[in-house]
Computed example of a mutant assay.
Amino acid sequence: MIASILSLLLDVAIVGLLVATIIYALRLNRQLSAVKESRAELEELVKGFAEATAQADSSVKGMRRTAQESGEALAALITRAQTLKEEMELIVQAADGLANRLEAASGKARAAVMPSAPPPPLTAAPLPRPSAPAAAAAVRAATSAPPPQAPSPGGPEPRSRAEKELLQALENLRP
Rank of each mutant, 00 (worst) to 15 (best):
L167V: 00
I5S: 10
P130K: 00
L84W: 02
L28F: 14
R30G: 15
T53F: 13
N172C: 03
P128G: 06
E44V: 06
G97C: 11
A142Q: 02
S33F: 12
L173I: 01
A142E: 10
A125V: 09
I14E: 06
A3V: 05
E69S: 05
A40L: 05
R140I: 15
G62M: 13
V46S: 07
L167M: 03
L127N: 05
A75D: 08
L9C: 08
T123W: 12
G48R: 05
I23Q: 12
L9H: 08
M63I: 00
V15P: 01
D96T: 09
R65F: 04
L45K: 06
A135N: 08
R161E: 10
M63S: 10
L42Q: 14
F49G: 10
P119Q: 14
L17N: 09
V15T: 12
L102M: 07
A81W: 12
S144W: 04
R27G: 14
A81N: 15
A124V: 11
Q55V: 06
F49Q: 13
A25F: 07
A76L: 14
I22P: 03
S106G: 09
A109Q: 04
S59P: 00
R140Q: 12
A76M: 07
G62H: 03
R101W: 03
A135I: 01
L127D: 01
A34D: 07
L90N: 10
M88R: 11
P146A: 09
R101P: 00
V35E: 03
L28S: 12
A95L: 12
E72L: 07
A20E: 13
P151K: 03
L122A: 05
E163S: 02
L17D: 08
E72P: 00
N29Y: 09
R129W: 09
P121Y: 04
I5P: 05
L122D: 06
P118M: 08
E51H: 01
A145W: 06
T53S: 10
L84S: 10
L84P: 04
M114V: 02
Q31M: 09
E157W: 06
Q149F: 14
V139H: 07
M114K: 07
R159A: 02
P133S: 07
I2Q: 11
A76K: 15
A52E: 11
R129V: 11
P156C: 06
S59N: 11
P151Q: 08
S4V: 04
G16I: 13
A20Y: 07
A134H: 07
A95P: 01
R27I: 06
A76S: 10
I5W: 04
E89W: 05
S106R: 05
R80W: 06
